[in-house]
């Protein structure tokens, strides 16, 4: 475990906690894409199938359980909580799941490391995670007023991806033969999706104005 990996995991953890806290305390999910949250729940479910078969470390197991639990709680809040669900803007959050899920599934069936159920599901989760933020980014663009917590949530998610790339570069130089191109490509695509958002986030921070994405 290197410092970039730990920082990445912690950023990821904080992003999820920020979102849960926002929903739990202000009882609102305004500006949050249910589609993206459901895709993340699917990402974690398909990636962490190894919870049942392999043990890596206590840290690894606990973090996996936290990500699974938090992603399903967020989906539950938006769909079922009687106050929170009223703030969900269904008409703006129109991205269709299958536009994202199907291509990722096909790609995972075609391009994978090993043709086993677990390995294909793991590869699918990587492809899916790379694009799962799209419904959220579309929603941010449509929402004229992005509240601070939503902006921070997306910023932290992007930061987590960027830190993971630093982690891979570090591991590439320190661990012999540490390379897996599927992870690299999916990870780089995912990070690039945040580039535009980062640009406007830093602009709004620098100029001390409210974050707004151009239509």
């Amino acid at each position: 475990m290197n410092i970039f990996r730990l920082a990445g995991d912690m950023t990821h953890l904080v992003s999820v906690l920020v979102l849960l806290l926002k929903i739990h305390t202000i009882k609102s999910c305004a500006g949050i894409s249910l589609k993206t949250q459901e895709l993340y729940a699917l990402v974690f479910t398909t990636r962490y199938l190894d919870l049942f078969t392999d043990y890596i470390s206590l840290y690894n197991t606990v973090m996996k359980l936290i990500f699974l639990g938090s992603s399903f709680s967020i989906v539950w809040y938006i769909r079922r909580h009687k106050i929170v669900r009223r703030s969900y803007d269904k008409d703006q959050d129109t991205f269709r799941h299958y536009f994202i899920v199907l291509p990722c599934l096909v790609l995972a069936l075609l391009i994978h490391h090993k043709f086993t159920f677990k390995e294909v599901m793991w590869t699918f989760s990587l492809y899916l995670e790379a694009v799962a933020i799209l419904p959220q980014l579309v929603l941010l663009q449509r929402t004229r007023n992005i509240d601070n917590l939503t902006g921070q949530y997306v910023f932290l998610l992007g930061a987590y991806r960027a830190l993971y790339i630093l982690n891979w570069i570090y591991r590439h130089y320190t661990e012999p033969h540490y390379v897996h191109w599927i992870t690299w490509i999916a990870g780089i695509v995912q990070t690039l999706l945040y580039a535009d958002f980062f640009y406007y986030y830093f602009q709004s921070w620098k100029n001390n104005v409210k974050l707004q994405l151009p239509a």
């Binding site: 990996r5 995991d9 990821h12 190894d50 392999d54 890596i56 470390s57 690894n60 973090m63 996996k64 990500f67 490391h113 390995e119 793991w122 993971y164 982690n167 891979w168 033969h177 540490y178 390379v179 897996h180 599927i182 992870t183």
Partner: peptide, 10 residues
């Protein structure tokens, strides 16, 4: 191991 994907990551 060149063939081993990064399964120790989250």
């Amino acid at each position: 191991n060149l063939e081993q994907p990064m399964h120790d990551e989250l």
